[in-house]
Design a protein around this nucleic acid. Sequence first.
DNA 1: CTGAAAGCGCTTACAG
DNA 2: CTGAAAGCGCTTACAG
Lengths: 334, 334
Amino acid sequence: LKTVTINDVAKKAGVSKSTVSHVLSGKRPIGVEVTQRVLKTIEELNYKPNVVARNLATRKTRMVGFYGPSTKSFKNDVFLNELIAGIIDVLDMNDYKMIYNPEKTNNSNGLPFDLDSSQPVDGAIIMNPRIGDDYLLRLKTEKIPFVLIGRPSDDLDIFYVDNDNVASTYSVINDLISKGHRQIILINSPKSYTMSEDREKGYMMAYSDNNLPVDGNLIFNVDICEEDGYDICSRLIGAGNPFSAVFACNDIVAVGVIKALKENKVKIPGKVVVIGEGDTLIARIHSPAISSINLGEYDIGATTAGILLDVIEKRRIKGGGHIMPSKLVERETS
Amino acid sequence: LKTVTINDVAKKAGVSKSTVSHVLSGKRPIGVEVTQRVLKTIEELNYKPNVVARNLATRKTRMVGFYGPSTKSFKNDVFLNELIAGIIDVLDMNDYKMIYNPEKTNNSNGLPFDLDSSQPVDGAIIMNPRIGDDYLLRLKTEKIPFVLIGRPSDDLDIFYVDNDNVASTYSVINDLISKGHRQIILINSPKSYTMSEDREKGYMMAYSDNNLPVDGNLIFNVDICEEDGYDICSRLIGAGNPFSAVFACNDIVAVGVIKALKENKVKIPGKVVVIGEGDTLIARIHSPAISSINLGEYDIGATTAGILLDVIEKRRIKGGGHIMPSKLVERETS
DNA sequence: CTGAAAGCGCTTACAG
DNA sequence: CTGAAAGCGCTTACAG
């Protein structure tokens, strides 16, 4: 079972391998008679071009690396499904493929991802940028095309797609304040993420614009999972700390919060209002159905992939951000 | 910004490129002084070996193709998250990566996937095998390592990982019958899947073992989505067809079923019992919480990946099936 | 319209 | 312990 190469085809068809190559790529005109013969030979020999060899010769792979959350987060987070579906759909239409690279929590080099010019990808999509992510600058100098999902730490000349998290958080908190809420819990994503900074900023602004003091003890940074939402909320109730609203950075965190509230027989939304983020399947299916900010995950994924392909194929050179719309979907918890 | 190659390193370090290669791979002993010098040069030049070139030379890529559901299914199916997490975790531990290939519904060649020896992967994981899938035989003759998730159509010498869907369906239906149910709806996956055949077989067996006639009109094949579950159930109620239990092939289908029941004010489980499959987050979070068969998705993914790596690395030669345990988790709908 | 040859950047027998 | 050279299977200038 020897593998059939372009040489075998060329020999059997009585042509050069450049001709075979060109018949396949269509990059130069080939006589119709020759084309027929080559195609027939390819069929007979069941020849399949070796993609790896082609990749080496062209220095392109038509592969994109997706650098996203750890598998632990992925397991229970429907948020990613829509986003990834958006990415894959756009890549697929353009004949690109995606490699999933989960974040490494204790990487030897201290970086969340092993991404450098040795990787067999034409570009990368990187989620959850962190504050002070200097390795992104290295990627930039190494001319590796990449697009962030989320705002970069400082260099805004990097390509990125994001929601306006400052505005959406501001809007939610401001609205709650206007309805009389004063002790509003913010359960935010890990402190290191730039999006956490944005939510906190929106939160602060809302209080400040209403001439109210901010209580730093109402802001928490957690891992995005049900347990952490549950733990925080249980602890607050246990300590007797008063609060009338919770804004959680993710629907699954909100589920944990509501679980704790239910266990303590706290009426929702009567005593405590809960708002999640992501507007995932979870928010809709949960009972009570969770009010949640829709971030347009599918579109985020699709837009990001589209921009990345533009960058890879040099249709887009100048970096910058692309802000996607988001809006609160009210359900039973608010 | 010329890319640094192994030649540049060799030249600057004053050694041959075989030596550089061997320092990196450790495949033959290199003098300690030379090793130091090479390593230092690599550092200075910031040399990153080109993985594509290595792949061509070794005819290995350390990549695995995952051939799974379309992005449409992926979007709302948490079932896949655990399964994929299991795959990626095992691959990651072994320094392999995964490429997600969604199923193509209208592929020009009529096949669900473009998978042949030209693909830059060392092996493949293929979901949802269909009845009469002859292209799998072609993969086998082409010596492409692959493992199925689900039972192959006929050739049981193919590697596969599956649950005993006949047994689990039999158990659910038999149990319902013993509790007095007679009109049990089976909402099965598409007819073409081998697993659908297995569920139907288990369903039939349960009726037969209880000396009851099977009503073929109670069995439906649907796409795995909420809408289809909803539609079937609504239609049945609308037509006045009596039934006291529904077994759905997937939690999200069960969600649709329950939605229809609720809309028609049918008491669950008082009037109609509903049982799902997958035991996903959805089943747990839903209200009422859905009784569902736990299939051990994470373990399925992890086991499949492990077997595939065994096959790729020739630690496993003889094909066959690996049956994973499943069990019903009772909640509020039964 | 077609071919001979160089090159992509590695690995690995072969030779010493 | 180390090197020179062939080879992996393609693409693409260069030449005609």
